[in-house]
């Protein structure tokens, strides 16, 4: 489900079935890395969108969190807050999706699950290979989701 009224209505009726939130982390660099950060932002957005389509019955895709490059440490406490508040409304699994390496280095400080996926040069691809590449990446993440769910469901 996405963060749009129609989907939230559906969520309110089926809340017990939804236990996972996806939050894309979107870097914005206003200096040299402008284009690079845009690529990463686009990739994380597309990938999370794809995952939402596959798992729309169990997942809420939150609007992404944008942050300025170099300010990651200031954003960290925010992420913890998200983790806590989402946990309270029984969204037990929180996945942060990003292509920014800065988060990989801070992985243990993030409360939720960090999915760091290196971005692909989608710009140079045509529509068909774009979809195929995204699907490939997403397929691997999907098994990760399934694994997390299985762990929590059997407990």
């Amino acid at each position: 489900m996405k963060w749009v009224p129609a989907d939230i209505e559906m969520y309110l009726q089926a809340a017990e079935y939804v236990d996972t939130a996806i939050i894309p982390l979107l870097p914005i660099d206003l200096e040299d890395g402008m284009k690079d950060s845009a690529t990463k932002t686009e990739f994380a957005t597309l990938l999370s969108g794809f995952l939402e389509r596959q798992f729309r019955g169990r997942v809420i895709l939150m609007p992404g969190i944008p942050y300025q490059k170099g300010m990651e440490d200031n954003v960290l406490p925010q992420l913890e807050e998200w983790n806590k508040s989402l946990g309270k409304v029984s969204l037990r699994h929180v996945f942060f999706i990003t292509s920014d390496l800065a988060w990989k280095q801070r992985e243990d400080k993030i409360g939720g699950n960090l999915l760091w996926v290196p971005s692909l040069p989608l710009q140079q691809m045509d529509e068909r290979s774009k979809t195929a590449a995204l699907e490939d990446q997403a397929a691997q993440l999907m098994s990760l989701f399934a694994q997390k769910w299985e762990e929590s469901d059997t407990v």
Binding site: R53, F55, R56
Partner: peptide, 8 residues
């Protein structure tokens, strides 16, 4: 599309 909540 799953008839439950729309997963694939």
């Amino acid at each position: 599309v799953c008839k439950h909540l729309g997963c694939v």
